[in-house]
Design a protein around this nucleic acid. Structure first.
Lengths: 206, 206
DNA sequence: TCGTTTTTTTACCGTTTGGTAAAGTGACGA
DNA sequence: TCGTCACTTTACCAAACGGTAAAAAAACGA
C-alpha cells in the first residue's frame, strides 16, 4: 500500500535497494549532490527512473540514507579509542584504521567530504547531537592521557582534526595525489609516513 | 564584434567581470559545480542572466576562469620555499602561510577542494603540466635538506600532503570544525597546534 | 490454477536549466 | 545632431530535471 516499502523487505527489495545505493554512492561522490541525477543513479543500478522512485521517495532520501549508513561505520573506529589502552598505540591504531578506510572506501570519504564542504546541510543535526558529544568524550580521554604524563601536551581537538585530515586526504584528494606521485599505489608510503609522523608527535618528549 | 570581450577591458567590463567572479566564487564553493546555477550567479552579481553571458561564454568558462585565477595565487607560497633558507623555518613559514590562506579565503579553498574531489575534470592538465613539476622540484629541495642532515628523514611528498591537508582542513571542513569546537574562532589554536606539531616533526632527532 | 500483491514499464508533466536572438538603451566622439 | 559601438533587457527555446499516474507484468500464496 505504502509507496516506499521499508519493513519486511523482500529479497527483491533488498537487492534493488542495495543496487540503487551502490550506484548512488558512485554518482553522488563523483558529481556531488547537485550534479547527481536520478537518471544516472538509475542507469548505474540497471533500473528505470520510476523504478528507483518506487524504492526511495526521492533524490534527497537516497542521499540521506547513504549518509546516515556511512556515518555509523565511519565514526566507529573513534568510538573504540580505549582509555585503558596505551595512548600512543591507541592513537596510532586509530590513524592506521582511518587511513585504511580512506584507501579502501574512497567514495564514502568523498561523499562525506562533499557534504561537509557544502556546509553539511543534511547532517547538521547529526554533527551537533551525535558527533559532538562523542568528539568531546574522546578529547577528554586524550586530555586525561596528557594529564597522566602519557602523552606530550597537545591540543586534543586539533590533534583529531590532524588525524582526520591527513588520512582522508588520500581519498578526498586522491585525484591530485595520483597525479603528483610517481608510484601507482600510495598506500604503503602513506602508512609509513603517517606512522612516523604521529609517532614522533605523540611519543614523550626527552 | 566578438561576443566576449577580453582585451582592452573598459571600466564597466572590469567591474562586471569582477562582480560575476565574486558571486560565482560564493555560489560554486557553496553548491558545487553541478549544483550552481547561472541564475544564482547572476542574482548574486546583481545582473541579469543574459548579461552575465555577455561577459562569459558559459557556466564552465566562469568556473575555469575562477579556478585558474585561484591556482596562481594558491600555489605561490610553495614556489617561495627557499632552498637557501633554514629548512625548519621555511617549512613552518609555509604552514603558517597556508593556514592563513585557509582561514581568510575559505571559499577559494573549498572551490579547489570540490574540483579535486570530483576527479579534477577541469584542471587535470594543469595538475600534470604545472603543479607536478613544481611539486617535484620542492620534493627535491626537501630531500636535499634531509641529505644535508638539516631535517630528519621524512618522505617529502607525503610531508607536503600532510601540510596541505591539515591546513586546508580548517577551510574545507569548516562546517564540521565550527560545530565541534566550543570557541567561535579556531584560528589561534589552529596556529598553535600546527606550529607545535610540525616543529616536533621537523626538528632534528636527539 | 487463480486471485492478490509486488514490482516494472510506459507515457507523461511542470519546472528549471544553460543558452540564444534580437530589440532596446546608453555613452561618446565627430 | 547623428552614427557607432558597448552594454542591457525582454522574450524565448530545447533539453534535462525530479517526479507522477496508471497500466502492464511478474511473483507469490492458497
Amino acid at each position: 500500500m505504502t509507496n516506499t516499502p521499508v519493513k519486511n523487505p523482500s529479497r527483491i527489495q533488498m537487492r534493488n535497494r542495495r543496487l540503487i545505493l551502490d550506484s548512488a554512492l558512485e554518482v553522488f561522490s563523483r558529481d556531488g549532490f547537485g550534479g547527481a541525477t536520478l537518471d544516472a543513479i538509475a542507469k548505474g543500478a540497471g533500473l528505470s527512473k520510476p523504478n528507483v522512485l518506487y524504492y526511495f521517495e526521492g533524490k534527497t532520501e537516497i542521499y540521506v540514507t547513504l549518509l546516515s549508513q556511512l556515518l555509523e561505520t565511519w565514526l566507529d573506529p573513534l568510538v573504540e579509542l580505549d582509555p585503558q589502552g596505551d595512548p600512543v598505540e591507541e592513537l596510532l591504531g586509530y590513524v592506521r584504521h582511518k587511513l585504511d578506510m580512506s584507501l579502501e572506501l574512497p567514495a564514502e570519504s568523498k561523499l562525506f567530504a562533499g557534504e561537509i564542504l557544502q556546509g553539511a546541510p543534511h547532517i547538521a543535526d547529526y554533527l551537533k547531537n551525535d558527533l559532538k558529544p562523542l568528539f568531546d568524550r574522546k578529547c577528554s580521554v586524550i586530555q586525561y592521557w596528557i594529564a597522566q604524563g602519557k602523552l606530550p601536551d597537545i591540543d586534543p581537538a586539533h590533534l583529531i582534526f590532524s588525524i582526520w585530515s591527513t588520512t582522508q586526504h588520500y581519498a578526498d584528494f586522491g585525484a591530485q595525489v595520483s597525479v603528483l606521485l610517481d608510484e601507482q599505489d600510495p598506500a604503503a608510503r602513506a602508512h609509513q609516513h603517517l606512522e612516523k609522523m604521529f609517532r614522533r608527535l605523540l611519543s614523550p618528549v626527552n
